[in-house]
Amino acid sequence: MKHTLSVLLQNKPGVLSRVTGLFSGRGFNIESLCVAETMEKDVSCLTLVTRGDDNIIEQITKQLHKLIDVIKVTDASEGSFVEREMVLIRVKAEAHTRAEVLRVIDIFRGKVVDVSAKSYAVEVTGSPSKIQAVIEILQPIGIKEIIRTGTIAIGRAGKNK
């Protein structure tokens, strides 16, 4: 099963390689990984998506927590959370398809970020399944390049908070 883990780390050199080294050394799988500073300058948040049964996810969580520079590990999948990913797609846009591309992007609430005579670069943000959907729809028109950020996630506030 797919899990989205949110990991708070000390923002120090080499910390990311401790995390990725843990995954490669123990044979765990990373589907996507995203890391950047948080509100506190010396703390980073790393969001990673991995797959495994409950035992494997339990081991991953515990092994991550064992790293000295890891402050907190949360399995977003355990509670209610919002997941987002951004994709940049360069799609062919010739005379007969330019309008169709714009319509599709509009439906997905995306926008065009670069224009050339033969292509558009478009930006779409959404849940991973929405990103997958826009890619599938644009595929027949002709995708030249895809760059995805990987998933980030935030927990939903409780009803009474």
Partner: peptide, 12 residues
């Protein structure tokens, strides 16, 4: 880098 997987922790 070399000893990251075989130390409890390390520092440069």
């Amino acid at each position: 880098g070399i000893t990251r997987p075989c130390t409890k922790h390390n520092f440069l």
